[in-house]
Amino acid sequence: MLRAALNRLIGMLTVMAIVVTIVFVIVRVTPGDPAAVMLGPDATAADVEALRQRLGLDGTILQQFVSYVGGILRGDLGQSIFLGQPVTTALWLRAEPTFFLTIFSLAIATTVALPIGIASAYWRGSWFDQATTTLAMFAASVPSFWLGLVFIQTFAVGLGWFPTSGYGGPYSSLGERLFHLALPATTLGIVSSALIMRFTRASMLDVLNDDYVRTARSKGMSEWRVVIRHALKNALIPILTVLGLTAALLISGAIVTETVFALPGIGNLIVSAVLRRDYPVIQGALLIVAGLYVLVNFLIDMLYLLVDPRVRY
């Protein structure tokens, strides 16, 4: 178990090293000189040179790489061009809404999708199964920005139950801030629940016909126990993979949702950085997103190890 965890950890660090290299290379192979592109055609050569230095684009490729990696290891992702603050600070200030948005969406998606998926597999072919299948298809095909706008129109503008956008003022309490996430998290949660729901249903259907489920019934236990303890635990193994995928999709979903709800999160930061060609911020955000992605996969792998005794890396 410990050795397997260690193996995965080494794998995770390898992936991160590759990501760091790719991010480094991407900026360097972008056609044209990033500094010149950023400053526009009217810039003087001295200005461009100064910016090249700030971006770490001076010196040989090897020197650039060493100082870039050294910076990352020290936790230094460079300076934002437009925000006048270090990239790490810019990311950190916007981490909270994104973090909670992702967590809440995943929580909403799972708590909605798992029970519905289980129930529709158990009562396959029933009206409940058919109704939820239709709903899942709807949830999977509706764009999140559209659903977000509908929610704003209905629950914020129309009924006035929730704030329309933003993340509260500078002096809002944590509770007030989180309240602003109710609509965005529901939007993102619903959109991502469809995949989990369909997968849970399929996986449960598979498992409910397995021989050990019949054995469990033959022991004289409640259907509840048969389904949860014997069937669901086996069905969870493939479902975990989808949860990992969903978590990754949520990160990109957050970009859209944060824009619709004007949430000052990392997604919003990325959008504005791209629009303004703020290379250091784009690079930093890429690293953070990739890091989160790798971390989620690591956690999923650890869950596999916990659930399935047959898995050995």
Binding site: D210, D211, Y212, T215, D308, R310
Partner: peptide, 9 residues
């Protein structure tokens, strides 16, 4: 079916 009648987990 002895191979599949026990719960693998």
């Amino acid at each position: 079916e002895p191979m599949t009648s026990l719960n693998p987990l």
